[in-house]
């Protein structure tokens, strides 16, 4: 069977601009357009290749700025790699921002409906699952209040609930679990086990090595945009921890 996600030789570069780059038309007229051009490119990701088969869970570990979130965004179809390509077969459920892409002025319900549609459902399908989503997120009382009145934990719970109730073929989760309390974390992990068992591929970024070690089958280790190692979660987490301890020992 074809893997759900195939990442081949993916590179993503960012542009570094002049500090005096004009940000308004007014400045551009005054300073000229010369400084609009980027000074250099730097690679946020370089030569990344791996696959995620159905029903497998892959953890991504690495220091801050190593490209973990960029990688998840690209797999989610936000932006496009500068080299290589990414193939994704199936519906994506994602929780990449703690705010889940919610708009602060809209209510929890309005945001949840839009998020469900953005996860690939029709409005009707989202409404059918609404009770389940709300019960899972434990936000019944606040549902019709603006999201800005939600605590960050509540926002995360609602975002997570939508993402896991849309029958995704692939689930992308970035750091979200660290916001919830222990009991909710457990609930999330249980739910992820469930959808994993039904064949969903899961990609998980977490700073807590124990989460990756306990929950993931495989892991990849990113450092400065490069893939350092990939393999079983236990091995990679051990290597990563050893590497980090070595780095901080100097």
């Amino acid at each position: 069977m074809d893997p759900i996600v195939t990442v081949s030789n993916v590179g993503k570069s960012y542009r570094r601009y002049h500090p005096d780059r004009p940000g308004t038309i007014q400045e551009a007229v005054a300073k000229g357009l010369r400084r609009m051009r980027h000074l250099e490119r730097f690679w946020g990701l370089r030569d990344i290749s791996f696959t995620v088969p159905a029903g497998r869970t892959v953890g991504i570990v690495g220091a801050n700025g190593s490209g973990k979130s960029t990688l998840l965004r690209l797999i989610g179809g936000v932006g496009r790699p500068d080299t290589g390509h990414i193939d994704v077969h199936g519906r994506i459920g994602a929780l990449l921002d703690l705010s889940a892409g919610f708009h602060p002025e809209l209510t929890g319900r309005e945001n949840a409906i839009l998020a469900g549609i953005l996860n690939g459902l029709t409005r009707k399908q989202v409404l059918e699952r609404m009770d389940e989503i709300v019960a899972f997120a434990e936000v019944e009382d606040a549902l019709d209040n603006p999201i800005r009145t939600f605590s960050s934990g509540m926002q995360m719970r609602l975002g997570f609930a939508v993402a896991v109730h849309t029958q995704p073929d692939i689930l992308l989760i970035d750091e979200a679990l660290s916001v919830g309390d222990i009991s909710f974390q457990k609930k999330c992990l249980d739910r992820m086990q469930q959808i994993k068992a039904s064949g969903c591929a899961i990609l998980l970024v977490s700073h807590e090595s124990s989460t990756v070690e306990d929950f993931c089958d495989d892991a990849i280790w990113l450092n400065a945009g490069r893939l350092i190692a990939q393999g079983s979660a236990t091995d990679i987490v051990r290597q990563y921890q050893a590497g980090m301890a070595g780095a901080s020992g100097h």
């Binding site: 965004r73 989610g76 708009h103 953005l118 992308l172």
Partner: peptide, 9 residues
């Protein structure tokens, strides 16, 4: 911004 940076949009 929140839509541009979100998968599925």
């Amino acid at each position: 911004r929140e839509l541009v940076r979100r998968p599925g949009v």
